[in-house]
Structures are given as structure tokens and as C-alpha cells.
Amino acid sequence: MSGTAVICCGNPSRGDDALGHLFFDRLEKASGEFEVFCDYQLQIEHVFDMNDRECVIFVDAAVDIAGPFEMREIFPGRDMSHSTHVLSPQALLDVYEKVMKRTAPKAYLLSVKGESFGLGESLSANAQKNLDAAWDFLKDFMELKSDLGKAAIPG
């Protein structure tokens, strides 16, 4: 295993929590030096998806960011997420180092702003705009060679 792993998460049935899944759908149709994964939430077994990667990018919806999206480098760390059924990306990196007994790969968290998370809701208009903006950014960031024009990408 090598290259970049992109791990998208969220609950697609809960409004803007689907942002990670919509990213996954787009990435699956793009080509590049990466492998993409999707799940409801991060958990301990995801350390195996990160094994021997040069880089890992986590993509998730967020409510606590100012702009439409935010990309930042993250590092292994302990927080209270290790005490729930869902691990934060930082806690997962920490678990990775303990399980694999090696330094965690370089990692980034791409947070896309969401605002409405009701069961059965579709994506909000603002989240759709944020998704498009974050997608354009990530394409440049990863130097993706998308085979699809933006208009053809489902969203």
C-alpha cells in the first residue's frame, strides 16, 4: 500500500452530514494516486487503511468552522473521542501509532461546513456551495486528474 488514502465520513441520511459521502462519490469517479474509503464514522479498524500511506486526508462535515471549508494538517492526539463509538481523526492517528508501532503518515482534515442535520433532509443549499468550493480546492491540492467535467459530477 502506498500513496494517499482519503477517508470520507458521515451519515448520508442526515442532511449535511452527507458531505463526506458526496465527496466519496466524486472521488470514486476521479483518477489519481489515491485510494478512497467511506464510512459512517472513524473507528479503530481504519488504522489498517492508513497503513504505509504517504498521506491521509480525512473529509467530514463540520459546524465549527468559519468559512465554507477548512483544510488543516493534523497530528496524533488524545481527546475524549476515544471514549465514544466514533474516533476523531487525531485520536485515530494516535491509535495508529500504538497499533502499528510507527509514526503516523502525514495527515490533513478537510472540514466542509454544514448547517442542517435532520434525519431524511437533503443537502442544504449552502452545504452544496461549500461542497463545490471544497471539491475545487481538493482537486488542486491533490492534483487530481478528473475525467469528469464539474457539471457531470453528481452533487
Partner: peptide, 14 residues
């Protein structure tokens, strides 16, 4: 299992 909660970053302060 309280699974219908959403898991967006920042939505689960303890």
C-alpha cells in the same frame, strides 16, 4: 446505541 445522532466534527462536545 444512540445512532441517529449525527457525527459531524464539532457536534459532539462532552
Amino acid at each position: 446505541c444512540l445512532s441517529c445522532a449525527t457525527h459531524a466534527v464539532g457536534k459532539m462536545p462532552l
